[in-house]
Design a protein around this nucleic acid. Structure first.
Lengths: 213, 213
DNA sequence: GGACCCATGGCCCCAAAGGGCCATCGTCGA
DNA sequence: TCGACGATGGCCCTTTGGGGCCATGGGTCC
């Protein structure tokens, strides 16, 4: 079964939201409607089993769409945002896009346009989730390393030889080997190349040698 | 000396362009004015010695700003674009931002706002140039590899042992070693880690092992 | 035709990495 | 206090990788 793709709809206009909800359902996604930013934030925008996105009304009583967008970013929520607005202006749309909104549409919007935007948003989120899951997997492995192991690892992925690392750290080659072996085991890397890749995924220790000219 | 930062101004309104030009110069950058998209394209937007950006008027006789933007992207020009417009609309601004425009401003714009946008655009371009120069350096090294060497390299950065590569290619370990040595020499990599890094910069052969769960 | 590059590979040797076995300390939690 | 674990390291042996030296054969470019 296809993992459920959830489309959160945050709009104070119940009638409009219902229409959107139907559209979303008809397109094969799972709509969830909220009538205010606060209500949405209380729920947390969790969509356990798959990618999702949010369709935000710009103009709502209480917290406005753009403000909610910023709040979401501040909380580290990666849910892509699509704005819908009745009376938007350029600065608002530009700011929204700068912050990574997928689209900024003016009502009335043809259903097809919304569907396309949602599709793009869901795809983007699916990518983000993939990258994030890889990254967090690597992070959890990194977390299992002892400080010393991690230190040795940074030397290893910098291309240093065991003897050099030993000299730098003032310890014996045997000990470096021991740490190194532990690193490979804990990181579940079966080769130096794999270890370097894993570290790059997590953004650890860039560049093993001087940059090119 | 600071490398010259060039700000191309494409606007059919000569008076406005002159004002912009003065503003840009006062901010310490080098302005270059063009009165039409065609004129700018003919010049090519080359700014030899440093980062640059373009300030485009949306509404011009002949090719419009957004059209020029697309043309630039089609030609692989990495110059960041800032739009200025008198009568813009949301779809235009949103499309421009989706295509990577740095900003989309409505006239009249406070000089300070323009300066900030240009600063951001120049910084972005400087980054892009840095990455591009690294990338092209690696590409040129890759281009020096013989097909066989490159083939061997993909196995190497996938974490395969020489004996495994030899078996896979049906050749002797000695030959693999020879190719491998040539690869390290031509790529100017002094360690496996460095080689992997170089390849990642150029987007060659991702992931040395299965992805995490 | 000679210079050069590429692909191939045998022989040999050394350096480096991997790993087993064992041992000592010190810390920390049960 | 015992046991787990991290850090350290000696000894030893095997597998790999790196290179030197040399050779063959096939192309290509002046």
């Amino acid at each position: 079964m296809t993992p459920t793709e959830t489309v959160f709809i945050v709009d104070d206009d119940a009638t409009f939201a219902r229409g959107l909800s139907r559209l979303v359902r008809a397109a094969g996604w799972n709509p969830e409607v909220f009538s205010s930013a606060a209500e949405f934030l209380a729920h947390g925008g969790r969509c356990e089993d798959g990618p999702g996105c949010v369709i935000l009304d710009v103009k709502m009583p209480g917290m406005k769409g753009p403000e909610l967008h910023r709040t979401m970013l501040g909380r580290g929520m990666s849910l892509p945002v699509i704005f819908l607005t009745g009376h938007g202006d350029i600065p608002t749309s530009v700011d929204a896009m700068k912050l990574g909104a997928v689209d900024f549409l003016e009502k009335p919007v043809p259903g097809q346009v919304i569907v396309r935007a949602v599709r793009a948003a869901l795809d983007r989120h699916a990518d983000a989730l993939r990258r994030e899951s890889e990254r967090s997997e690597v992070e959890s492995r990194l977390a299992r390393l002892s400080p010393r192991e991690r230190e040795v690892m940074t030397y290893v992925i910098a291309g240093r030889l065991n003897k050099q690392i030993a000299a730098d750290l003032g310890i014996s080659v045997k000990t470096v080997k021991a740490h190194r072996a532990k690193v490979m085991e804990k990181m579940v890397a079966d080769s130096l190349a794999a270890l370097v890749d894993l570290c790059r995924v997590a953004g650890v220790g860039q560049r093993a040698q001087g940059r090119p000219t």
